[in-house]
Design a protein around this nucleic acid. Structure first.
Lengths: 224, 224
DNA sequence: CCCGGTCTTGACGCGATCTTGGCGCCCGTT
DNA sequence: AACGGGCGCCAAGATCGCGTCAAGACCGGG
C-alpha cells in the first residue's frame, strides 16, 4: 500500500485529503507543521509527500530544502499562491510536482499516481519463514527447501490475511469478508474446506496443525 | 546539451519558446502537428517533449497515447484549458507534468529542468539472456542465435513489464494497466491472446512454457 | 485503393479450482 | 448416555480461467 504524508496547517484540508486518499486505499499520515513533517519523513519514509507551502513554523520552501538534504522522497508541493516564482523555486529545489489551490481531488490523485509511478516505488515483501517453509506473500510464492508449493488464489488470499495479522486471532467473519466480500453466506464451510487444503500444503502434519491453528467458535490464527 | 521538442500549432508560441529555450542553451526542435511530432520523437528521441493539447490533426491526448506506446520520453503537457479532467487524463496517460496557459517562461523552464532532472536518473540497459535467446528490452530487439525475432509493440510492452519484474509475479491488473492504461476492461482476453503469441515467438516449446509462466487467477511471471 | 501486419473480439474445450452437501469425530452440556 | 455445536474431511458436480483458433476491425504504407 502506498504511504502518503500530508503536510498542511489547515486541519480541514488535512481531513479532506486523508478521507479521500484513504478511500482510495492509501495509507495516510498527516502533519500540521514543518518540524513534525521532517520527523515523520525521517522515521517512516513515505512514498509521497504532499507539502503545503504555507506552514506556521518553517516556511514550506525551507522544509523542502531540508527534506532534500537527506532524502529523494517524491514531493508534491501544494500552494495557494499562483505566483510563478514560487513554482520555479519549489521545482528547482527538487519538488517533483506543483499544484495550486483550489484543485480537484481527482487532479491531486492523478498527480499522486503519476509521481509515485515515476518514483518506481516498491513496497518490501511480506515474507514469513519458519523452519524449512518460506512464504513470500506479496510475490505469492511458497517454497519448502527447494520445492515450490502451489497455492490457489483463494488459498493465497486467506494466507495473506492471516499473515498480515500474524500471531493474532482473525475472526471467521473478517476472514470471510476479506476473501469473499461482504456478501458471504454465514452458514458455509468455505473456510473449513480451504483451511484444510492450506494445511495439507503448508503444515508438516496436516492433522496436527502448528502454523494455522483454529480457535473454535472464533476464527483462525497464524503462528510464526 | 538537453534536447527539447516543442509541439504547438501556434507559430508564435513555437517561436517564443524556441528563443527562450535556446537562450538557456537548450537544443530545440519544433513541430506544428501531431504526426511530425511523433516522427521527430521516433527519429531523434528528445530529452523532453513540450506537448500542446490543441493540435490541428491529432488531439494532443492521442499524440500522448501514441508516444507512450513506444517510448518513455518525459512529456510536459501544455494546455489552455484548465479543466481538471484534462489534467487527470493527461497524467494518467503517462504525462510527466502539466502546465496551463498562460504561464511564465520561468515556470516552464523550471518544469523542464525538474522533469529532465528526474529522467536523468537513467536506468541501465535491460538485457536478458537465457540459453540461445537474447532480449534487449531497452532496444526492443530479440534474437535467438543469429536469427532476429520480431515482436509487435504490444508484445514488447508486455515483455518489458515482465522483464522489469523478472522472477516476480505480475498481476493481471498491473499488466493490463501498464499496457492498456487504467481504463482497461476486466473481462477481456487481451492478455491470453498476446501471451500466446509471445510464447510462440520466444519459447522453445510454446505448449510448455518455461520463461513466461502463468499463475492461474493471479498473473504471469517471467523466469530468467 | 488495396494489402499486410496488428489488434480486438467471440467461441470453444479442457483442466484446475471452487462450491456444496453429507458424514463422522471431538467435546462440552444436559 | 444422549445430544448438538463446531470442525475436519471427502467427493461429486458446477464453475472458472486459460490457451487456442478464427474472423473481423483497424491502420499505415505502397
Amino acid at each position: 500500500m502506498t504511504f502518503v504524508l500530508v503536510v498542511d496547517d489547515d486541519p480541514a484540508m488535512r481531513r479532506t485529503l486523508s478521507i479521500n486518499l484513504r478511500a482510495r486505499d492509501y495509507d495516510v499520515e498527516t502533519a500540521g507543521d514543518g518540524r513534525s513533517a521532517l520527523q515523520i519523513v525521517d522515521e517512516r519514509m513515505p512514498d509521497v509527500v504532499l507539502l503545503d507551502l504555507g506552514l506556521p513554523d518553517l516556511d514550506g520552501i525551507a522544509v523542502l530544502t531540508q527534506l532534500r538534504s537527506f532524502t529523494q522522497v517524491p514531493v508534491i508541493v501544494v500552494s495557494a499562491r499562483t505566483e510563478s516564482d514560487d513554482k520555479v523555486e519549489a521545482l528547482d529545489l527538487g519538488a517533483d510536482d506543483f499544484i495550486t489551490k483550489p484543485f480537484s481531488i481527482e487532479e491531486l490523485l492523478a498527480r499522486v499516481r503519476a509521481t509515485s509511478r515515476r518514483a518506481g516505488r516498491e513496497e518490501p515483501d511480506l515474507v514469513v519463514e519458519v523452519d524449512g517453509l518460506r512464504l513470500d506473500v506479496t510475490d505469492s510464492r511458497a517454497t519448502r527447501g527447494e520445492d515450490e508449493i502451489h497455492l490457489t488464489p483463494i488459498e493465497w488470499r486467506i494466507v495473506e490475511v492471516l499473515a498480515r495479522h500474524r500471531g493474532r486471532l482473525v475472526r471467521q467473519a473478517d476472514l470471510l469478508t476479506a476473501v469473499w466480500g461482504p456478501a458471504y453466506d454465514t452458514q458455509t464451510n468455505y473456510l473449513r474446506v480451504h483451511m484444510a487444503s492450506i494445511r495439507r500444503k503448508l503444515e508438516e502434519d496436516a492433522a496436527n496443525p502448528v502454523l494455522f491453528v483454529t480457535e473454535p467458535g472464533m476464527g483462525y490464527r497464524f503462528l510464526a
